[in-house]
Simulated scan of single mutants.
Amino acid sequence: MAVPDTFLTLAAPAAAEPPKTKGSRFIGEAAPVRTEAEALAAVAAVRAREHAATHVCWAFRLGPGGPKGRSVWRTQDDGEPSGSAGAPILREIEGRDLTNVVVAVTRYYGGTKLGVGGLARAYGEAAGAALDAGRPARGTVRVPVVLRFAFADTAPAMRLLDAFDAEVAEQTFSPDGTELALRVRRSHAAPLRAAFVEATAGRGEVVESR
């Protein structure tokens, strides 16, 4: 089965706060991210701003750029009972088929214990409200392709960029010619390589992607 070239994420950060649950405030914040480092930085920013909060629980999901399109995810209960916070947040992300998204839910304790079930509902509700407040956006999965060719083959090589929706990440010149580091749609990578070899009559070289 072919791995899709696009995925659903958020266009921009969003936040929402449902009504209090037995006196506790649950504030959901969602943001688009590209890497685990970005996700953790977003959580750290929430934690620094909401430093008086009882808990800042979170989950993120990254996915379409990984091997065979597999998702990568992490959750954190931040001192709440195991599985009562991070997992419900992740379920809200997955339930909307979103990826490259992090959600943090800040809790200010209201004096009444909620139990595992009550916590799961409250954290899930805040996460869902934040995600629903955001605007969905369609992202494109791109992979690296590096081409090397002589100056005489510049015209046929460059014509391929538009034909295959290729983005130039880096262009390097040497006495022997040009090296182009491209980012292309995943499904276009193999056809582009074949078309490049044909366009340059075998003179061009597809080098190790980086």
Rank of each mutant, 00 (worst) to 15 (best):
Ala2Gly: 05
Pro4Cys: 08
Phe7Asp: 03
Thr9His: 12
Thr9Glu: 05
Leu10Gln: 08
Ala15Ile: 01
Ala15Gln: 15
Ala16Pro: 05
Glu17Ser: 13
Pro18Thr: 02
Pro19His: 09
Thr21Met: 13
Phe26Gln: 10
Ile27Tyr: 11
Pro32Val: 02
Pro32Arg: 08
Val33Glu: 07
Val33Gly: 04
Glu36Asn: 00
Glu36Ala: 15
Ala37Ser: 12
Ala42Tyr: 10
Val43Tyr: 11
Ala44Phe: 02
Ala44Ile: 01
Ala48Gln: 15
Glu50Cys: 12
His55Val: 00
Ala59Lys: 02
Ala59Asn: 09
Phe60Gly: 00
Phe60Ser: 00
Phe60Leu: 08
Leu62Thr: 00
Pro64Ser: 13
Gly66Arg: 12
Gly66Ser: 12
Val72Cys: 11
Val72Gln: 14
Arg74Met: 05
Gln76Arg: 11
Gln76Asn: 14
Asp77Trp: 04
Asp78Phe: 07
Ser82Lys: 14
Ser82Gln: 14
Ser82Ala: 15
Gly83Met: 09
Gly83Gln: 08
Ser84Asn: 07
Ser84Thr: 11
Ala85Met: 06
Gly86Ser: 05
Ala87Tyr: 10
Pro88Gln: 04
Ile89Phe: 10
Leu90Met: 13
Arg91Leu: 10
Arg91Pro: 01
Arg91Asp: 15
Ile93Cys: 03
Thr99Asn: 08
Tyr109Asp: 01
Gly110Lys: 07
Thr112Gln: 12
Ala120Trp: 00
Arg121Met: 08
Arg121Ala: 13
Gly124His: 02
Glu125Asp: 14
Ala127Arg: 00
Leu131Glu: 06
Leu131Ser: 05
Leu131Asn: 03
Ala133Lys: 10
Gly134Cys: 06
Arg135Lys: 15
Arg138Gly: 03
Arg138Pro: 00
Thr140Phe: 06
Val141Tyr: 06
Pro144Lys: 09
Pro144Arg: 04
Val146Cys: 13
Ala150Thr: 12
Phe151Arg: 10
Phe151Thr: 04
Ala152Val: 12
Asp153Cys: 05
Thr154Lys: 14
Thr154Ala: 14
Pro156Cys: 09
Ala157Ile: 06
Ala157Thr: 11
Ala157Gly: 02
Met158Asp: 15
Leu161Pro: 07
Asp162Met: 03
Ala163Phe: 01
Ala163Arg: 15
Phe164Asn: 07
Glu167Arg: 14
Gln171His: 06
Thr172Glu: 12
Pro175Arg: 03
Glu179Ile: 11
Leu180Tyr: 10
Arg183Lys: 11
Ala189Phe: 03
Leu192His: 08
Ala195Trp: 10
Phe196Pro: 03
Val197Pro: 00
Val197Ile: 12
Ala201Trp: 03
Ala201Gln: 13
Gly202Val: 01
Gly204Ser: 04
Glu205Ser: 11
Glu208Cys: 01
Arg210Cys: 05
